[in-house]
């Protein structure tokens, strides 16, 4: 299977850092997941082959780490912390608010495939609680209003991208029409 050049460069750089090949597994899985969206059978087979592991071994590792998933997720993975520091400052309300707003529960993905909601453990933002991460971005000292703004921003970003894809598509259409004509 094909990964991006960036991934390949990272992979190539990383493997020689270790005396055993498989040592590169965990970070590599995360990078592959970032790229593909989830760890598909194909990704698993590919990485197992590259690192001299069985697919079973790779699956055993994947299923251990909570950030790794073999199931597709939304474009924005909304991870709301409800652990102790967040709990006492309203983390659960943020989570409930998101659940209502998105209409999904823990690990649920919105039908448009944009958001996946997840209740997560402490993300290291305790002094700025309550906190959440959207993919890798931290959002701290949250209130429900602030959370709304974060979600709106995601939507806007998605729309902008959609727009861009559409315009690329129409450009491609125009180009192909022109070449045909």
């Amino acid at each position: 299977m094909k990964f991006s050049e960036e991934f390949e460069a990272r992979f190539a750089e990383m493997v020689p850092h270790y005396p055993t090949k498989r040592s590169a597994l965990v970070p590599t899985l995360l990078y592959a997941q970032d790229e593909v969206g989830f760890l598909s059978d194909e990704v698993i087979a590919e990485l197992a082959g590259r690192l001299d592991l069985t697919e079973l071994e790779v699956r055993n590792v994947i299923s251990y780490y909570s950030m790794l998933t073999t199931k597709p997720r939304g474009k924005f993975n909304l991870q709301v912390c409800t652990n102790i520091s967040c709990l006492v400052r309203g983390g659960e309300e943020i989570l409930q608010h998101c659940a209502k707003k998105l209409g999904v529960g823990h690990k649920g993905t919105t039908p448009d495939g944009l958001f996946t909601l997840e209740e997560v453990e402490c993300i290291g933002a305790c002094s700025w609680a309550p906190a959440a991460q959207v993919n890798y971005d931290f959002h701290e000292n949250l209130t429900t209003e602030k959370m709304d703004r974060v979600l709106d921003k995601c939507l806007a970003q998605a729309q902008e991208q959609l727009q861009r894809i559409k315009s690329v598509d129409s450009l491609a259409d125009t180009l192909s029409q022109r070449s045909e004509g």
Partner: peptide, 27 residues
Amino acid sequence: IYWHGGAGAYEVGEESALMESLEGKRG
């Protein structure tokens, strides 16, 4: 010096589990 990244597991903070993780295994 090399950087190495985890993928979500508190237990991997335990020193020997961290070594397992760094070796590409379950923590």
